[in-house]
Design a protein around this nucleic acid. Structure first.
Lengths: 147, 147
DNA sequence: TTTTCTGCAAATGCTTTGCATGGGA
DNA sequence: TCCCATGCAAAGCATTTGCAGAAAA
């Protein structure tokens, strides 16, 4: 996991470099994403910031996530039921393990994905540009007790 | 790829066995899904059937897909932008290769996924129940010409 | 001072749902 | 005949957009 502080700096650089202003709301969003504790949802980000910025709008969260995505500083984990989650700590595609009970999302260590990509490219004659790999299951805590 | 005719039969059996009626609309949807040419979207299914059933409703397509999903006869490939696709030919989770230009979806041959699943389970202490693996890229036709 | 950003509310677009009618078995 | 299924329209929801005022730089 990358150092959250460094990630925030990197994001700020990208923003400035592309002619964007650093507003307090934007910075707050960037900080949460750089940390990406548990891969937050839009709601989670919004709720967390609402304490400091009572007038904060959901639209602002959406707009900034969109911006950071376009700058390649945030990875979107989109789900069809609208429960999207975000990772600004490791913005490059990587596998995720998702607890279908408590919603926790964990990054596993996996090596063999690159060779798999090569195999697929060779097999299908596609030029592979990106990928998405999710495992769904029950985490250890949820198996143990109701918590 | 499974034989579409056998798949239709299998789906019909599941429907009857669970006390559901075989209506013309339902049968038409089942046939298209059993074939799953290019992994159709709801719209694609709807459009294809509209010719034979001018009064066909989108709601009916949605309701039947929901039903077939609950019976385990259809695999849903959900995308956050609402461009969901369906596979009633191979309803068990398997990798997909998606052309981001023309939308084509192909099933590659991949073996190493099972061991990867075991690795993840061991690594994270999750009980893995399902997975989703998509590769995104440009297909051979789209690379060649505009088509 | 200029240009971008924010907040609010209205608009979107896919999917689901309520209800009355219609059609399998 | 008895229910389940369909069609239509309205409702839901996450996300996007238009606009006017606020605030970076």
């Amino acid at each position: 996991m990358a150092d959250p502080k460094e990630r925030v700096q990197s994001i700020i650089q990208k923003l400035k470099g592309s002619g964007h202003k650093i507003t307090p709301q934007r910075l707050a969003i960037a900080k949460i994403l750089a940390d990406s504790k548990g891969h937050p949802s839009v709601e989670a980000i919004y709720d967390q910031i609402s304490g400091d910025f009572p007038t904060m709008s959901l639209a602002t969260v959406y707009r900034n996530i969109l911006l950071l995505k376009s700058l390649g500083e945030v990875l979107e984990l989109g789900f069809p039921d609208g429960s999207n989650r975000y990772d600004g700590n490791r913005p490059i595609p990587h596998p995720h393990v998702i607890c279908i009970q408590c919603g926790k999302i964990v990054d596993p260590d996996l090596e063999s994905l690159e060779e798999m990509k090569a195999e697929v490219a060779n097999d299908t004659r596609f030029t592979i540009l990106a990928h998405r790999l999710d495992f769904f299951g029950i985490c250890h805590q949820c198996q143990a007790g109701e918590k």
